[in-house]
Write a protein that binds this DNA or RNA. Sequence first.
RNA 1: GGGGCCGUAGUUCAACUUGGUUAGAGCGCCGGCCUGUCACGCCGGAGGUUGCGGGUUCGAGCCCCGUCGGCCCCGCCA
Length: 591
Amino acid sequence: MSQTFRWQRTHTCGDLRPGNTGEQVILTGWVQSTRDHGGVIFVDLRDRWGRTQVVFHPEDAALIEQAKRLNMESVIGIRGRVVERPPEMVNPQIETGRVEVVADRLEVLNRARPLPFVIKDPPEALEETRFKYRYLDLRRPAMQRNLLLRHRAAQVVRRYFDENEFLEIETPVLMKSTPEGARDYLVPSRIHPGKFYALPQSPQTYKQLLMVSGFDRYFQIVKCFRDEDLRADRQPEFTQIDVEMSFVDEEAVFTVMEGLMSRLFRETLNREIILPFPRISYDEAMLKYGLDRPDLRFGLEIQDLGDLVPGCGFEVFEQVIRSGGAVRGFRLPGAGTFSRKQVDDLTAFVRNFGPKGLIAVQFQPDGVKSPVSKFVAAGWMERLRSRFGVETGDAVLIVASDKKGVCDALGNLRNKLAADFGLIDRSRMAPLWVTEFPLLDWDSGENRWVAMHHPFTAPRPEDIPLLETDPGKARARAYDLVLNGSEIAGGSIRIHQSGMQSTLFRLLGIDAETARRKFGHLIEALDYGAPPHGGIAFGFDRLVTILAGESSIREVIAFPKTTSAISLMDGCPSEVEPAQLAELGLKWITS
RNA sequence: GGGGCCGUAGUUCAACUUGGUUAGAGCGCCGGCCUGUCACGCCGGAGGUUGCGGGUUCGAGCCCCGUCGGCCCCGCCA
């Protein structure tokens, strides 16, 4: 218990091997567990690098008394000699399992109180408890691995872009609030009472302005903020890999990003992925997979049945087609024997997305079972069977509704069933580009067009005439990168001429005055020699989540917030002093 | 804003169909035994405002209302 001994470790807890046998070493770390056999005592010492077994022998009475009092998660230093374990005592589960350290000196550097939960994988504590004591949760090897992976991914990104002549340039975190897109987080200005900064939803306009400045190739690993409701894959603050390039078209962007993905997989997971990535148009994705982020790791492809409907005899189908809707479905192998309850559950699931129901056509050995059997014309079931290549024992699941409802319902049903019935090949990585997105989307609530990607996205040249005649049909030069059914990046070739930018603002119902006030600097910049440019932004957290094989974004974020945007650890958001409000010229109004 | 699931010991869960005496178990914690374990083992012990507030009832962990919190989903997320 010397106060003067210098506990400077000679090795980490992951270092020692038989080659170190005989060396005197000093280790420091956390007590993972103690095994007191009455005579000999074993202590597993843990740090970021691994775990090493320390042995205390009973000959040194003072030392063994100290060791007896060790408790879990205390921080200690030990000195001792490395010995090789006899073959029958090797622990093959840990890297250092062929050796142990026979201690001759021990000091408790900081004794830990009993912890709220045991540090082990998988965690025994609920997420709620883990978040309250996140600093303890992060001691778990799985969390250390995830954050190490995240770090490595970030370093790969920096190296890759640096090698390709991209500049990492920081953009402001305090910026102007914009009318389009997600709800902004606002920051009141003390110096200008009544005025506000906004935290960036993305550095979109800044990176475009950097292209106008001639930097040509920009990237940034940057925090973005959106004040919207949360999900398993959504946090109020998240990290983007933000990229912009000058004098490029879609192909050039794809090539550089595929190169990045290839490097990421190789240098973090030691995995090769096949280049180039497949591509699919938005329309085809919606038709075959129901979603604009298809998961290609399994089949269950959707087929349109519109051509089978006229004259089929089932009035519900006929009516949906006459009114411009769609009748589509997919084949689910083995679902021919689903119970009534199973089908009812799927029907309830489908109703979440708009359609009134789900028609399950079950092909059973003794015939076809379906609620529409008694309505449809003779031979219709056979046409259905050949359309889907049905084998006995399968079912075809059909949804009839407006097009959006059919896509939503079948797309989500497809994902759910694949997950529920283990149809997803977890060993596969399935990246793809989704292209040819619509430029605009009709917002029936606000009764106006909104940008599907963002208002700076260029229309495809051949669709420019449509802007005046049928804006909803115009396609954008926008693209998403989808990996395993998750949208991990999205971008576009931008508008680089102020005339077109003004046209877009006009289409979006943003009047000239508002456009000038909110985006005047960008429009003006486009007139001073803006190069053609485009870019993309990766959801870094989502990407790392997939690399780590996790299912929630929270598993790769050191200090995440809950689904109600609260930090259970430090209790933010929290109230502030009245004086702070006064200084900002703000007053709390109870509603 | 809406729907679903959940909240019981430090922690993870249980307490039965349909409310009934003293709310149980694993892990952790405390004490004891044990010289080769590595999820050590064995014996004993302590530990509870059943999230909070109200209601129904002779009686509420259980039923009802409200509220707070967690997770999943819809809306939302250019």
